[in-house]
Nucleic acid binder design. Structure first.
Lengths: 194, 194
DNA sequence: CGCACATGATACAGTATGTCTCATCTAAGT
DNA sequence: ACTTAGATGAGACATACTGTATCATGTGCG
């Protein structure tokens, strides 16, 4: 096992990064089953023993990937816009993340999380940020009366996010901006107080 | 390889069923990675060579499980009910399937489908039935004017189904009848012409 | 009974896994 | 520049898994 205190050692950092890049490509190309110590070693040119030193368990590599590469990089949309515009912006943000590499890593993790509680916990932490942003936007919508006061925010959040995951995970289809626009129109349109 | 013409041989059927039962339990208990020829043989008490004879490739076992156990058993709700009632009935039907073993098999398959096109094709065939039922119900709703004529049916379907998958796959939460009711109220309620 | 064939048991080579040792190399401080 | 701690590379090693083959035994069916 690598000394955790060696986090500042440039040699360690270099090796770690090279291996992790190879692992990410293996995951993307061949799925989570391909992320083994042996294949990471071969793909990165690092000795097999070194891969074991950095991640004693196979799942540790995947958890490291999840930490480093699958955060969805959601940013809060600007304040001045209308509720529908802010929601659309956030969902397009989420959509582009799901369309890219993060979506693939996420898919792998969702499959693993069913049976590995460490992966599940990591996934749990990861998906805490996006929903909070969306909830804030919707709550602000109720405050300034652009949303009806009796709106079921929990369900509305699922209704906005669920279809994106459905399209990505089950249909393997790209989530276009047009789709997000239609989604917001269908779900939010009728709820808006006019 | 087992002679496909031997499908009527009771000895073959018996062995096949015993192995498949063991495979299903392995999948449910330990995930798709645990469904190997060796472990199916050990768990079922069948010789390892026999497992290879029935399914030359590891994925074939999973595809067999997908065929046999993961169909969602959706039934069309009765005609006399209102649109919201029929949609609620169908979604509760889907929810109970997702809550049970089918949901777990489905989760495994979704993870595999990202990288195995055979699994993806099988998944594709499987999820053709449910959406068709829902689409028929919604189309009938437009015909009898209980839904607005300009309703975006494709998106509305995703909006109804997506949250269920989101809850099952990402939250690992049970989908209650109450949740389905709130879902239908939130999404369909405002669309209904009154 | 006798035939066709599925199964059980076992062997086999090839490969993957996990751990270990030791020489070499790198990044620090002296 | 020297020295030292520790990270890496190279490889050995036992064990386990994979895929295939062989042959004796058991089962279903005419």
């Amino acid at each position: 096992m690598i000394d955790p205190e060696a986090g500042t050692n440039p040699q360690v950092q270099r090796t770690h990064r090279v291996m992790l890049d190879a692992a990410r490509e293996l995951l993307s190309e061949n799925g989570p089953g391909a992320v083994t110590h042996l294949r990471v070693a071969e793909a990165s040119g690092v000795a097999r023993a070194t891969v074991y030193r950095h991640w004693p368990d196979r799942v540790d590599i995947l958890l490291d990937l999840l930490r480093g590469g699958a955060d969805l990089h959601l940013v809060p949309p600007p304040e001045g816009l209308s509720l529908a515009e802010r929601v659309t912006g956030l969902l397009q943000n989420l959509a582009s993340a799901l369309n890219g590499d993060s979506g693939q890593i996420l898919t792998a993790m969702i499959g693993l999380a069913e049976w590995d509680e460490d992966v599940f916990a990591a996934l749990e932490r990861m998906r805490a940020f996006g929903p909070r942003l969306l909830r804030d936007i919707l709550a602000a919508g109720i405050d300034d009366a652009s949303l009806a006061a009796d709106t079921d925010i929990d369900v509305l959040m699922d209704v906005l996010i669920g279809p994106l995951f459905l399209r990505r995970l089950l249909h393997h289809a790209e989530i276009t901006n047009d789709y997000v626009a239609r989604l917001v129109t269908t779900t939010l349109g009728p709820c808006l107080s006019r």
